[in-house]
């Protein structure tokens, strides 16, 4: 397996790891967003969805283990690459004018760091119930965990919604560059499809951000309520 080690040691191999792990996280967020939108169908639908997920340990733990592998790998590799990039230019320019790079490409690492903090907070909030221990004790009429009540109460707090929306704003920029950049890193480039890559990245990034943001906004404005 020494070839795998030397591939990971190379800059191109690390970018391939960024692309593959990024794609998996991206796929998960799409599914996550679709699930979140079920909140618009009310308490029963949402809690049925939550109970179905929890009632399927291979799916639940398979997804969790996959994410617990790829998310740390995505961040670890990113930090290694950032360090490498800083080492590659120890003396910076007194003046530097960007010519082609975009706001999204230049801020991808900062958005990523915010998203890492957000993911940890999000897990502490809605999965581990560290910030709100009472969430774990909510049950609906059928005795299932009342995930709907948890979401409505969580997003009734404007501070939570603000933290969430800033994360979604970071996500749109992170993905608008990352989701086409991963094709380039894997060598998937063809003049016929290159424009499609960038358009698809922007479209999916906006769909994700709008989809994710709609639930907390709907709760805060009273569209979704108990």
């Amino acid at each position: 397996m020494s070839w795998l080690q030397s591939l990971y040691a190379s800059t191109i191999g690390k970018k391939a790891v960024m692309a593959i792990t990024g794609l998996i996280i991206f796929g998960f967020t799409l599914g996550h967003m679709a699930g979140n939108l079920l909140a618009f169908f009310g308490e029963d639908t949402f809690n049925t969805y939550a109970a179905t997920l929890k009632g399927n340990p291979p799916l639940l733990w398979g997804t969790r283990l996959l994410l617990l592998t790829v998310i740390p790998l995505h961040f670890l590799t990113a930090f290694q690459l950032i360090k490498r990039s800083n080492d590659a230019r120890p003396a910076t320019y007194s003046k530097w004018q960007p010519q082609r790079s975009t706001y999204a490409s230049r801020t991808i690492r900062f958005g990523g760091i915010y998203l890492l903090g957000f993911i940890l907070y999000h897990l502490a909030h809605y999965t581990l119930f560290l910030t709100n221990p009472e969430f774990g004790g909510y049950h609906d009429a059928q005795g299932r965990h009342d995930a709907f009540r948890m979401v409505v109460e969580g997003f009734s707090n404007p501070v939570n919604v603000a933290v969430y929306l800033v994360a979604m704003l970071s996500l749109v920029f992170h993905l608008s560059h990352g989701a086409w950049s991963m094709f380039q890193s894997m060598g998937l480039n063809h003049p016929k499809y290159n424009q499609l890559r960038e358009r698809a990245a922007w479209t999916l990034a906006i769909v994700l951000t709008v989809g994710f943001s709609s639930v907390p906004i709907a709760v805060l404005t009273g569209v979704v309520h108990r």
């Binding site: 391939a16 960007p98 010519q99 082609r100």
Partner: peptide
């Protein structure tokens, strides 16, 4: 360093070499 797909290189290349070659090398 590594490639972040910024495209700055292509913009300043006096020979107009495209970043498509970077994908080809990857």
């Amino acid at each position: 360093g590594h490639c972040s797909n910024h495209g700055e290189c292509e913009a300043v290349c006096p020979k107009g070499i495209s970043v498509n070659f970077i994908a080809r090398m990857n």
